[in-house]
């Protein structure tokens, strides 16, 4: 039995990079980015995520936004592995400026310098900024 997703032509896989630079909740960017990431992953694309500047706060452990009337979408980052989205990169310098270490994050990430992130960016077919 053939399913819709199996009918997709092989070889149509592109490298998508999502660059997240905004803190969660204050603006809608973080949540919107996550939705697009989930959709592109459902179409079997090669997805990588970068968290830089205030975007590193999206991955902070212990978020509890009920008191401000928002959904706790930080839990959804932990579902990404199940969507085969496993390339998560974080800008080391942004973490340090904000007093964060890898232990403060709710998923496993790779810490990179801005230079290394720039090189990764050059390898992409599509770069989307949020």
């Amino acid at each position: 039995m053939s399913e819709p997703w199996e009918d997709e032509e092989e070889g149509a896989i592109k490298k998508f990079m999502f660059i997240n630079r905004k803190a969660p909740y204050g603006t809608i960017y973080a949540l919107e980015s996550l939705e697009v990431v989930l959709i592109s992953a459902a179409f079997d694309q090669d997805v990588s995520l970068v968290f830089s500047d205030d975007g590193v706060f999206q991955l902070k452990k212990d978020q509890d936004p009920e008191s401000i009337g928002m959904k706790n979408f930080s839990r959804t980052y932990r579902a990404l592995e199940g969507y085969d989205v496993e390339k998560l990169y974080v800008d080391k310098e942004s973490m340090e400026e904000r007093g964060l270490t890898e232990d403060d994050l709710l998923v496993d990430v790779e810490m990179l310098s801005k230079e290394e992130l720039g090189n990764l960016m050059n390898e992409q077919d599509v770069v989307l900024s949020f």
């Binding site: 989930l38 459902a42 932990r78």
Partner: peptide, 9 residues
Amino acid sequence: YQIAPAVRV
């Protein structure tokens, strides 16, 4: 996870 999973997932 606060989402409904895609069928594949």
